[in-house]
């Protein structure tokens, strides 16, 4: 069904693209309205809900103690999981995660892990024996396009508001999770020859390829993933990186830096 709609809308979106316009009147570098709420789930150590247009994503962070990996005895463990819940879209079905879900969860995970957002050394309770395991569970509640950027933002926001439950384990006072970086994922969609940010559901259906770029506050890139079957020219890659870094800084300043100060 959605594929049929996408086919019918393809010309429309293409024609708009040629006129430098988008379906909802945005510019190519505009995001839809972002609304960020934190601490929405009190049972979770950290939580955040992001609405991006009509896309809704809820991230809950839970911390448990566990044993470290043998090759990183003094480091905490990050486990990210993203599920495309059937509640979010008629396209999603119950069952084991599809490769899209696995890919997205790994991209979210990569952004947080590779940017060094969490100071994992500080999650070590006893070297080689006990560390905190950070479970980042991304729940997609409503899919109206660009789940991945919403998930990245919700995940980092949830982590920034996470309290390590030391009291629960008899380890002293609860402390905020030690954060070092604020990675922001920005997805660039390629439709025809144009690059645009924050693709809507229709635009995602029409676009041949997407490039998600997770960048850090120093303007460097922490993670990147090309999704979709169309090729990308080298210049387009560089252009996308520049667009994403610029937009990430904007989002970081608007939504995340406030969270960091409030801690």
């Amino acid at each position: 069904m959605s594929e049929i709609i996408a086919t019918l809308k393809k010309d429309y979106i293409y024609n708009l693209m040629v006129k430098e316009k988008r379906q909802d009147g945005r510019g190519f570098k505009d995001f839809r309205d972002i609304k960020l709420e934190t601490n929405v789930i009190s049972k979770a150590e950290g939580s955040a809900k992001v609405t991006l247009g009509n896309t809704q994503v809820l991230v809950g962070v839970k911390l448990q103690t566990g044993t470290p990996f043998p090759d990183s005895q003094d480091e905490g463990v990050i486990i990210t999981n993203l599920e495309l819940n059937p509640i979010a879209s008629p396209e999603f079905e119950p069952g084991p995660p599809r490769e899209e879900a696995i890919e997205m969860s790994r991209v979210v995970d990569r952004g947080i892990r590779e940017s060094g957002a969490i100071d994992i050394k500080k999650l070590c309770i006893t070297v080689g024996e006990s560390v905190w395991i950070v479970f980042i569970d991304v729940h997609i509640l409503n899919d109206d396009g660009n789940i991945i950027d919403a998930s990245c933002l919700a995940a980092i926001a949830a982590l920034m508001t996470t309290m390590v439950p030391n009291e629960q384990q008899g380890l002293g006072e609860n402390v905020p999770l030690a954060m070092k970086e604020m990675p922001v994922g920005v997805t660039v969609a390629k439709i025809g020859s144009k690059l645009m940010l924050d693709p809507s559901l229709d635009e995602e259906a029409v676009c041949e390829t997407k490039l998600t770029i997770v960048s850090s506050s120093d303007g460097s890139v922490a993670g990147m993933q090309k999704m979709g079957s169309a090729p990308l020219a080298e210049e387009e890659l560089f252009e996308a990186i520049d667009m994403a870094i610029e937009k990430a800084e904007e989002i970081r300043a608007l939504y995340l830096e406030g969270l960091a100060k409030s801690e």
Binding site: S115, G223, M224, Q225, P231, F238
Partner: peptide
């Protein structure tokens, strides 16, 4: 990439500046 230099797969993890990416490409 294809023989024409069109990029068909891009992944990345770590820490790279845009300049380093250009150099790496």
């Amino acid at each position: 990439m294809t023989q024409d230099g069109e990029i068909t797969l891009v992944q990345m993890d770590g820490h790279l500046t845009p300049e380093e990416i250009k150099k790496g490409m």
